[in-house]
Amino acid sequence: MPRLKRDERVCPFCAETIKASAIRCRFCQSDVTPVVEPEAEAQAPANPFARYRSRSRSGSAVEESVEPVSEESEESDEPVSDQVTDESDEPVAETVPTAPRRTPAFRRLTLVLAVLVALAAAGVGTMWWRAEHGSAASTPSGTLVGEDARTEVLIAAADLAQRTLSYDYRTLANDMEVARARMTPRFRKEYDTTMAQVRANTTKNQIVLQAVAVSSAIISATEHKAKVLVFLNQTTTAGTGKKANQQMSRNSLVITLTRGDGDWDISKLTALG
């Protein structure tokens, strides 16, 4: 198919070559819409793209490149500026949205918040680690939160309650020494006074008192002091053989424990009934 000229086009009905500005095909007599107005044909090219041709020195090869340019640039052969102008030929600045400007106060506040979050995370992580590893971790208020440490408090309270309230008339002196070994000096004096009053009756009536802790719960606990509610079953046996008299009772106690550098010691015992 021969190359079309700049002022030619193909009829959409018969495919014959006709003028670009024709309003009727001269071959099939069909009405067609002109590509450009007849009066503007001499001024504006049929193709909206300017064509620049360059030939080799021999003239045998033809290279054609098509680039979009404006009508003014085609006439003046000068590069077209990318800057958009309005009717007054003044440059129109392109508005680019920018991020809100951060003030120094905002940056300082952000830094402080980041530091506080990091410290809080480190504190929670440390408490969790210590609790998981059974250490005596505590909150800023002093409350004991380590699981193993709190379990140790419960076991100590149950054990010391049983030692204090259990004795046998046959081994009374030894039982008292075992109990006194885990008492604070002040509570030891109270214990000695009480046992001095019951010693004679215990030996005379051959009394065996056996206390068994069935459950316990922490009321409050820190690293150095704790209050524990202990539920006890106490069995009292008086006499021996067929004349033995046995009674069982259930008691509730509040055991107060204190600890220095060593084990928990009992410092107070309050019977709830």
Rank of each mutant, 00 (worst) to 15 (best):
V35A: 08
V117I: 14
K242I: 07
F231S: 12
C28H: 02
E147V: 14
A61R: 14
V112S: 12
K242P: 04
S249F: 09
E223L: 01
M127F: 14
T103I: 02
L154Y: 05
W129D: 13
L229M: 08
P79N: 04
R24N: 10
D82P: 09
R186N: 07
I218H: 02
S60G: 15
Q210W: 08
I219Q: 13
S73W: 00
S141E: 09
V230G: 00
A244H: 10
P48Q: 05
Q206M: 13
F106A: 09
E41S: 08
S56H: 14
V62P: 03
T33Q: 11
P34T: 01
V198I: 14
S215M: 06
I219V: 12
T95I: 08
V178M: 02
C11Q: 07
P91G: 03
A211N: 01
F106L: 11
A22S: 05
F106C: 06
D7E: 12
E71H: 15
Q246T: 15
P34W: 02
Q43W: 11
R3H: 10
T143R: 10
A200I: 08
P68W: 10
A149E: 07
G239K: 09
V62N: 13
T202V: 14
G241Y: 06
G239I: 05
E75H: 09
A238K: 03
K227G: 01
M176H: 04
A221Y: 02
N233F: 04
Y167M: 12
S166Q: 02
D265P: 05
T202N: 07
R3S: 10
I155M: 13
L257H: 02
E78H: 04
